[in-house]
Computed example of a mutant assay.
Amino acid sequence: MTQARFTTHVIQHVAFEDAGVLGDVLRERGHALQVLRAGIDDLSVVATHPADLLVVLGGPIGVYENEAYPWLDAEVDVIRARLEAGRPVIGVCLGAQLIARASGARVYPGTREIGWAPVQPTAAGRESALAELESAGWNVLHWHGDTFDLPAGAQLLASTAAVPHQAYAIGRHALALQFHPEVRPAELEGWLIGHTVELGKAGIDPRAIRARTVEIGAGVAAAGRRMFARWLEEAGL
């Protein structure tokens, strides 16, 4: 067996929202992944034994629900320590919101976006790894109800009309994505099952998301793979 060149900690909040194609790219690039379950596993290892990369995935809770979910404070603390050390981190959806909170920015309820739709890149976004999404018409999977203020010093990379802060970078070491380019289309059914209550409350028919996944899911996933690979290459990972 080939020895891993890098190590990656992955903080996962719900089982069906995993690293997906990002995990595939990381393994192909020689990363050994250690998955840590938020609220269950001890996250102090992220600070005491820092990996080459930290990936913070999505989930259905809000960063501001720390009284109901007190472990969120510890998660923010380990992310803050990593950011202050300038160590590489990627955040997706809730992960992007946690990076924002750890950076001192406000996180709060926003406009709910669920389903496949394009983002609008900024000029900086077109010069970044996000440029790989252009091949898929800038389409991505949205699944969020919260938003955040842009952290001080962060560079905005993409927006939508309803949610201006869709992606941002902090220096060269942090990439935060409100949307989900990591999703494998073949596994989206798990999302439809896991989020059935949310879909019902929002009046969204899962058949519409399923049909659109068949149309564009594979192309979006391929673009997401290239985006993550480019960012990792530029980060030396």
Rank of each mutant, 00 (worst) to 15 (best):
E127M: 06
G86K: 07
A218I: 07
E198H: 13
E17A: 10
V197W: 02
Q97A: 03
L150D: 03
Q155V: 15
H144E: 06
V35D: 00
G30A: 09
H13L: 09
R101L: 02
A218K: 07
A208L: 14
E233G: 14
R212E: 15
P151H: 02
A102M: 05
R80D: 01
I61L: 15
A32M: 11
S135I: 01
L156R: 13
M1K: 11
T111Q: 15
G171A: 10
A136Y: 05
I90W: 05
I99L: 12
Y108K: 03
V78I: 14
V140D: 13
A117W: 05
A85E: 03
R172M: 03
T7M: 13
H142Y: 09
V56T: 10
V45Y: 03
A100D: 01
M227C: 13
L83G: 03
G200Q: 14
Q12N: 12
G219E: 14
M1W: 11
Q120S: 15
D149R: 10
A47N: 13
A174L: 00
F179L: 03
L57E: 00
P164V: 07
R226H: 00
E28V: 02
A154R: 10
D149M: 05
S44H: 10
A211P: 01
A74G: 10
Q155I: 14
P185M: 11
A136N: 06
D52C: 03
A222C: 00
P60I: 01
T2W: 12
F16S: 01
R230V: 13
E233C: 03
G194I: 12
G125W: 14
Q3A: 15
I114L: 15
E215D: 13
F6C: 04
H165C: 11
A38D: 01
Q12Y: 05
Y69T: 06
P70M: 08
R230L: 15
L150V: 08
Y64Q: 02
G39Q: 05
G236E: 12
A167E: 08
Q178N: 02
R87V: 00
Q178R: 13
L130V: 02
H9M: 03
G86Q: 04
A96G: 06
A223R: 13
P118E: 09
G194E: 14
V78Q: 08
R212V: 02
A38R: 02
G200T: 14
A218V: 11
H9F: 10
P88E: 11
H180W: 04
G125R: 10
A81I: 03
L175V: 06
W138P: 07
T2C: 00
L130N: 05
A102I: 07
G217D: 10
R80M: 03
V35W: 01
T48L: 08
W116E: 06
H31D: 08
A124P: 01
A211R: 13
S103R: 12
Q3H: 10
I99H: 11
G194F: 09
E132D: 11
R207A: 15
H9L: 09
T122G: 10
E189W: 07
R87F: 02
G137T: 04
G137L: 12
P118S: 14
L94G: 04
P88W: 06
A85W: 00
R80P: 01
N66V: 01
A211G: 02
V140G: 12
Q97S: 12
V55K: 04
A131L: 05
D73H: 01
P185K: 09
A235E: 05
A221M: 14
Y69P: 00
I193K: 12
A152M: 05
L175Y: 02
